[in-house]
Design a protein around this nucleic acid. Structure first.
Lengths: 217, 217
DNA sequence: TATGTAATTATACAGTTGTTCAACAAGAGG
DNA sequence: CCTCTTGTTGAACAACTGTATAATTACATA
């Protein structure tokens, strides 16, 4: 099949899109590379192949590869927080937080690749570390508030700050171990552990009915 | 200054050492690179410069760079376990384990670099993952035994397996958060959190007298 | 001292890395 | 239609990557 016979028809070699749209797509492409192969796959060639653009564009829009990585970090953090604590504030109770923390969309090898790479970068990039500290503080504060409100409803007094720290570290550790080797612990069991720790301080929680699948083994 | 005039005197260009000694030194050199700059610094040039040998030697003794990394992993794991659970079995109670888990030698940016790099490798290297699974199982088993023994001494009954899993994940999470940003939590506070969780199930523990430093701030 | 072996060096190599930059061209505004 | 802005390309670039291999040479052995 040949091209249409019209002499004035020509297919553009590329499409121009707005800088913000292009930046967004490049961040997505970078994230995809990170997810597939960690920091070793976060190369200009891979990123540009993923985004289907030529190599010069990254420099044009971000200045350097490292600058792109910094933006990828910010995007990842924002998305994760949006996932853990949805904007619909009314629906965010502690139970939902636990459930979201161990949802399949976070509990997989791709997420592990992404976070290991970003943590490594934070460790050696002061600017990223400052930003991380800010995000983390907000995150912990939100959880402490959640815990505090729950305790108040139940007429209990807890050190919400300490419990939030324990909770975050516990979730991080459980998440990490399970991503590295999923055979260590099931997601259900990980949630149970979290609930167990929380309930020690807060009393019984309304755990969601576990959609128990019949396992015949 | 010229060389000594003695005609028979000559300074050797290199020293031959036993393969096992050389391998050991190369593992140390690789570990040092990993500690300094994570997986990005784990390059042949860096490793050989660190070990003060020429590039060909790594291939001669290990076959490839990845093979060296595998041995570095094994060495790191062995050393960490030896540090957490010293061979002197009599002295390893739970309190010692907690104290060792948050000792300064483990709680620093170098350790973080090392473990982030190794975890990334485990995630994409099936052989390493198998070995990791083995090491981890042994580690958890040992802790479960420790917990079980402690509970028996105190006439309590606990799910030692579950508590060990919680404990390991909690330590991992606390360790990780603190390495990434030491301002989140002090080592003393991290230990307190661990003791608190353990004591909920095991009753009061003989915490070591905290060498409290007078802080005037 | 002479000899053999294998530890070690040094170089070459092809492939990949991130960055730079001149040239191109898409698309908006005239 | 033309012009201008600038998003986009594509190649060139030096530096670096891991590996292979021939040439050295230290050192144990006889």
């Amino acid at each position: 099949m040949k091209k249409k016979s019209g002499p004035t028809i020509k297919t553009p070699k590329f499409r121009r899109i707005s800088p913000q749209e292009r930046r967004s797509r490049l961040i997505d492409a970078g994230l995809a590379c990170l997810a597939k192969g960690g920091i070793r796959a976060f190369t200009m060639d891979n990123i540009c192949r993923e985004a289907k653009i030529s190599r010069g564009l990254v420099a044009h829009h971000f200045g350097s590869k490292d600058a792109l990585l910094a933006e990828v970090y910010a995007a990842v953090y924002d998305r994760m927080l949006a996932h853990l604590v949805p904007p619909d504030a009314a629906s965010t109770d502690i139970v939902a937080l636990v459930e979201n923390s161990f949802s399949p969309s976070l509990l997989n090898g791709e997420s592990l690749n992404i976070w290991l790479a970003l943590w490594s970068e934070i460790a050696s990039n002061p600017a990223l570390r400052t930003e991380h500290r800010k995000h983390y503080a907000l995150y912990r504060e939100g959880i402490a508030r959640l815990i505090s409100a729950t305790a108040r409803d139940r007429g209990r007094t807890v050190d919400s700050y300490e419990l939030a720290t324990i909770f975050i570290s516990l979730v991080d550790g459980l998440w990490l171990e399970q991503c590295i080797d999923s055979s260590v612990l099931s997601a259900t069991r990980a949630k149970d552990v979290c609930y167990s720790v929380l309930e020690t301080a807060l009393g019984p929680l309304r755990r969601p009915a576990s959609r128990s699948v019949a396992v015949t083994a």
